[in-house]
Design a binder for these strands. Structure first.
Length: 399
RNA sequence: GCGUCGGUGGUAGAGUGGUCAAUUACAACAGACUGUAAAUCUGUCGCCUUAGGGCUACGAAGGUUCGAAUCCUUCCCGACGCA
């Protein structure tokens, strides 16, 4: 993998670049659609490619459980298995440590509302007895499969081995994504663990990467604490990673400062991936603060649930007012949905639970988000990032 | 015409003397969703309300009872059986 910066955004951390991999280039900043189980839900790879995706992100834990990384290796690797011949990134399973662990059965996710104070009270957090499918052990994490209840112990070494079997172009170190509700003591302990796992991930990767065709990114954690975040960035910077992920579950208002603290420290010449973030306002924030890659399930999940992006904010296509609306979801949108179908038709597909609804809505949402990042990229090249940002957010956030 | 069974909120379908404005499902209406346990989840869903409650309701009309969707009578409607 090779990363080249083409232009920088003045007086801040933003930049435009190109990542070159064995399976092609990624023009950064870029949005990476999520295809957890080797499939961008509801879309064929051709559809994903046609709407502008240059790279996708799949998941180590889910593919390890089903169909198994060895089967994927036998099939000739992920690219061949799923017929996606462009770059692929795999996440390490670190997010599942969180989503199936501390967050299991709770309202917490990538973004936690800071107003929900009960989530920020440390005393509350002795819930070790609460049911969860992931438990952190000495050496790694014990997962109980949500598919059949079987137990699987994933170590950093194991995660890297699985990812090499899958054969993505960019892979991630195994980490522990923490909840913002954890107290400082726990965040410190978890960060030490993540750092230890980062080193072990790197060592295992170096053993396996004989052909030198796979890039490994380390993941910065540290919760909402400035010293921990900076400590993490400095530590990871000292190791020989090809790039970095910025992880964690955030209170929305903490995200910008956390990203900035980290990116001011991380080496400029290596790409940075803000993990799991992708709402329009977050994309502007991240890019302005030096993020090169974003992945997020929001466009595809929202699409399947009838929530569609427009330049005037999100709309719920199931709302009664769209039943007789024969306009496109978004006027002048060049996506396949808007070029050919009306709001009324899409609303009908959703009300009728037609499977095509998910496909058409996903095409639109992914096109919208991918294209938004492409426009932001172009605005930096054209020296009008801030004007574009202001104009876009004025319309998008007004409602 | 006789007999049997049945008529419950937008629909299907529970309930069969008080805890029933009525289980549940679907539909409807709205909201949420950020490294995918997610084609998922949450809320509302007779009318009015100063949110305490008030009012009208289980085919219709009478009746029994302190009290009826629930019991009785007649009528109307439907399905099936016999003529």
């Amino acid at each position: 993998m090779h990363f080249k910066i083409e232009k920088k955004l003045e007086n801040c951390l933003g930049r435009v670049g190109v990542i070159t991999t064995a399976h092609g280039v990624i023009q950064t900043p870029a949005f990476v659609p999520v295809g957890t189980k080797a499939s961008v839900k509801a879309l064929t790879p051709e559809q994903a490619r046609d709407l502008g995706a240059e790279v996708i992100l799949a998941n180590t834990y889910h593919l390890y459980l089903q169909p198994g990384d060895e089967l994927v290796a036998k099939a000739g690797g992920l690219h061949k298995f799923m017929n996606w011949n462009s770059p692929i990134i795999t996440d390490s399973g670190g997010f599942q440590v969180f989503s199936l662990g501390a967050a299991y059965g709770k309202q917490v996710s990538k973004i936690t509302k800071i107003t929900d104070s009960s989530l920020l009270i440390p005393e509350r957090f002795d819930d070790s007895g609460a049911p969860r499918l992931a438990k952190i052990g000495q050496d790694g994490v014990s997962f109980k499969s949500h598919l059949d209840g079987s137990i699987h112990y994933i170590t950093p070494e194991k995660s890297i081995q699985i990812q090499h079997n899958l054969g993505a172009d960019i892979i991630f170190a195994f980490d522990e994504c923490t909840s913002p509700a954890e107290d400082f003591r726990y965040q410190t302990e978890a960060l030490e663990r993540t750092h230890n796992w980062a080193k072990r991930s790197l060592e295992e990767h170096d053993k396996l990467n004989k052909k030198n065709n796979i890039a490994l990114f380390g993941i910065v954690q540290g919760g909402r604490d400035e010293t921990l975040r900076k400590k993490s960035a400095n530590f990871l910077k000292s190791l020989d990673f090809d790039g970095f992920g910025i992880g964690g579950s955030f209170a929305k208002e903490d995200m910008q400062t956390a990203v900035r603290w980290v990116n001011e420290i991380l080496p400029e010449e290596k790409p940075r991936h803000l993990l799991g973030i992708g709402e329009p306002e977050d994309l502007f924030m991240g890019i302005e603060n030096g993020v090169d890659l974003f992945d997020c399930v929001a466009p595809t999940r929202n699409a399947r649930n009838g929530s569609l992006y427009t330049k005037n904010g999100k709309i719920n296509i199931m709302n009664a007012k769209y039943k007789n609306d024969f306009n496109a979801v978004e006027e002048n949108c060049k996506c396949y949905l808007c070029a050919n179908y009306s709001r009324a038709y899409l609303a009908h597909l959703f009300h009728g639970k037609e499977i095509l609804a998910a496909t058409l809505a996903s095409i639109h949402n992914l096109y919208f988000i991918i294209n938004l990042v492409k426009k932001i990229r172009q605005s930096i090249l054209d020296d009008n990032f801030f004007e574009f940002k202001k104009e876009f957010l004025k319309g998008y956030l007004k409602s």
